[in-house]
């Protein structure tokens, strides 16, 4: 049906062109619609990768604005109590301060809420990486029993009862709120959450004074063969976005990637998180088991929990105190101004 819908739009446009006298009114509408569609220019830092924008969801100023409004609107949850921002706090690089987040009526999710800064650059979503687009990802919290516990069609019906929302959706999409338009608007907003203004970025762009000597020592350690952190936390986004086992003993209730593949060799594998804004996003790991970055460093220093499937790069490091300090200092250099809600 998707394909035929495209053809339908095309033929309608052809019709508009052909039968100009009869359809002047409609054509006018089309023109106004297009005028409203001012493209949104993403401010992608020069050292960042390109962002893939799905063809069916071009960014426009009005769409991004609508997506932002929706992201912060608790009326998307079944009882009107929880918005996306309840678990993705702007001041915490759009992550949560709780080990595992809380949804409607105090329901507890099974995982820690990840940061959404720079999320538009990720190729896969969720901790087992099964979701391929930001658009599809919206369904998960919206309908998740422990998150917003709503049904997307009912959520759209509720939005359409609000005359302001109805007008905004009409303006942006030329139609009301639907599962399609709702997910497109929110995803469009999420793609604008771009940082790239951390001291680390200035350093990468050539300002050698942007990192303190201790931070530079930390960066060197991070990328060293001995620690090999950057073999998983690689590139400017500090993630390979692969599914890896970093030596955490998995909890029985969350086998990670194995949940999807049913392959024992995937038990305990999770998406490698970006370490941008890491100083803001405590607690850490998929279940928020570590309250501090000190605890994370201890985990890697001891060589992980020594469990099956643990990656061979996770091995005892015998870090000196000053090396731990240096790593912590480096983490501080990864904080983006926009990650603090500035």
């Amino acid at each position: 049906m998707k394909k035929t819908f495209g053809a339908f739009v095309l033929t309608s446009v052809l019709l508009l062109v052909a039968c100009s006298t009869e359809t002047e009114q409609k054509e006018d509408n089309l023109v106004t619609l297009q005028e409203n569609h001012v493209p949104f220019e993403l401010a992608i830092p020069s050292h960042f990768p390109d962002m893939v924008i799905p063809k069916d969801n071009p960014l426009t100023v009005a769409k991004v604005e609508l997506g932002k409004q929706l992201f912060f609107d608790p009326s998307l949850s079944v009882d009107g109590s929880v918005s996306c921002a309840s678990c993705h706090l702007p001041s915490k690089a759009f992550s949560d301060v709780l080990a595992v987040s809380q949804g409607v009526k105090g329901a507890v999710t099974e995982r820690n809420s990840p940061s959404l800064m720079n999320i538009g650059f990720h190729p896969i979503f969720m901790r087992e990486g099964a979701v391929p687009t930001l658009e599809l990802q919206v369904l998960s919290p919206l309908e998740g029993e422990t998150e917003m516990a709503h049904n997307i069609v009912l959520a759209c019906e509720r939005l359409n009862q609000d005359s302001t929302y109805r007008a905004r959706f009409q303006e942006v999409f030329g139609q009301s709120a639907t599962p399609f338009t709702l997910t497109r608007a929110i995803a469009a907003y999420e793609r604008t959450l771009i940082g790239g203004d951390a001291p680390f970025d200035a350093y990468l762009l050539g300002d050698s004074t942007a990192l303190t000597p201790l931070q530079q020592q930390g960066y060197a350690l991070f990328t060293s063969d001995r620690l090999a952190c950057s073999s998983c936390h690689s590139g400017v986004l500090l993630s390979s976005f692969a599914l890896e086992h970093n030596g955490l003993k998995p909890r029985d209730t969350d086998p990670g990637l194995m949940r999807l593949t049913l392959n024992e060799a995937d038990r305990g594998k999770f998406k490698v998180p970006s370490l941008r804004n890491i100083a803001l996003t405590a607690p850490y790991m998929h279940d928020g088991r570590f309250a501090s970055l000190e605890a994370v460093i201890e985990h890697y220093n001891k060589g992980g929990d020594g469990v099956t499937n643990q990656d061979e790069r996770i091995r005892s490091l015998s870090l000196q105190e000053d090396e731990k300090e240096a790593l912590l200092a480096f983490f501080d250099a990864l904080t983006e101004a926009s990650g603090k809600g500035e």
Partner: peptide, 26 residues
């Protein structure tokens, strides 16, 4: 099986509305 349910009309059995979609696994 990897199609996007939000691109189907509500009345379509493959739309999100049929509640057959596994969101986390898409």
């Amino acid at each position: 099986n990897d199609e996007d349910p939000t691109t189907y009309a509500n009345e379509d059995p493959l739309s999100a509305f049929s509640n057959m979609y596994w969101n986390w696994a898409t």
